[in-house]
């Protein structure tokens, strides 16, 4: 019984992390039509930066926010300086992000060596809480709470603000959005930086229990891809549902059939591709 419960809590926590990762990925993909192949790298680099800051005794939340800000800066610069030059050429843009993914991976290996780093869970987030006679590890609940809070904030941003309306207009039809006076290219930079920041923040949140190690980037990237293929491109609700689905499949798959965990992850993607190629909550685009 407790095994199942632990697995379920872990699954929800991983789902929360995956949402932090894939919501930005999904927004970037929805707006700019490019899958950002360095998204996993933002997650990993953010986590490493967080580890470095925590090692200097900086408060956990400040470290997470600082690392998110650094990722926003790096992501915004790459978008502004390099991706912008290739506007309209989707494939070169994608390959450029892949090139950066390799560079980031190698720089991280150089700076933080090949050993895994696992920062201690911050003191005030340690321990367990007792709910209805069952013990839950506090930190994982915090991860879920933060993910849900960010999901709500993103939903408010996208659905209820002027900026969100502009982003949605850009997602639906970028040329027409330009015609009515929306500066879509500024939105690109903004959304790219926001997505990078979310990934970096997720990386720091994940570090205390996933640990940070070389290869984490290309382990997270396919998960983000699968979440977005499942949930539908540009859909926050799709990213949320897809993240928790994958969180459960990943943890239960790894526990029950460790050899085939990856195959189990991939089955729902196959089903979705065959039955509903636009994803669960995706719109049909022509």
């Amino acid at each position: 019984m407790s095994l199942w419960l632990t697995l379920a809590v872990n699954s929800v926590a991983l789902g929360g992390l995956l949402f932090l990762l894939s919501s930005g990925f999904s927004l970037i993909f929805g707006l700019m039509r490019i899958p950002n192949l360095m998204h996993g790298s933002f997650f990993m680099l953010g986590a490493y930066l967080g580890v470095a800051l925590l090692a200097r005794g900086i408060n956990f939340w400040i470290a997470a926010l600082a690392s998110a800000a650094a990722m926003a800066l790096i992501g915004g610069l790459i978008e502004r300086v390099l991706l912008r030059r290739l506007e309209g050429q989707v494939l070169p843009q994608v390959l450029l992000t892949l090139g950066f993914a390799f560079i980031i991976a190698d720089v991280c290996l150089m700076l933080w060596t090949g050993d895994p780093w696992q920062p201690a869970t911050p003191d005030h987030l340690r321990g367990a809480v007792q709910v209805a006679g069952l013990y839950f590890p506090l930190y994982r609940l915090v991860v879920v709470a933060v993910a849900v809070a960010i999901a709500i904030a993103l939903w408010l941003l996208v659905d209820w603000t002027r900026l969100g309306a502009m982003i949605r207009a850009g997602v639906d039809d970028a040329p027409i959005a330009r015609v009515v006076g929306i500066r879509v290219s500024q939105l690109f930079t903004l959304v790219f930086a926001l997505g990078a920041a979310l990934a970096g923040f997720g990386g720091v949140m994940g570090a205390p229990y996933l640990s940070v190690y070389p290869g984490l980037d290309f382990e997270m990237l396919p998960l983000a891809l699968i979440v977005v293929i499942l949930g539908g491109v540009g859909s926050l609700l799709g990213a949320l549902v897809g993240s928790f689905l994958i969180g459960f499949l990943y943890n239960f798959g790894t526990a029950l059939l460790p050899d085939l965990a990856y195959v189990i992850l991939f089955l729902p993607m196959v089903l979705i591709l065959v039955l509903r190629p636009q994803g669960l909550f995706g719109k049909v685009t022509t």
């Binding site: 450029l96 892949l98 090139g99 190698d106 720089v107």
Partner: peptide, 15 residues
């Protein structure tokens, strides 16, 4: 650092 070189060539060629 082969991967670093790989990434840089990638970016240079694409750009």
């Amino acid at each position: 650092r082969w991967n670093l070189v790989l990434g840089v060539i990638f970016i240079l060629i694409i750009s």
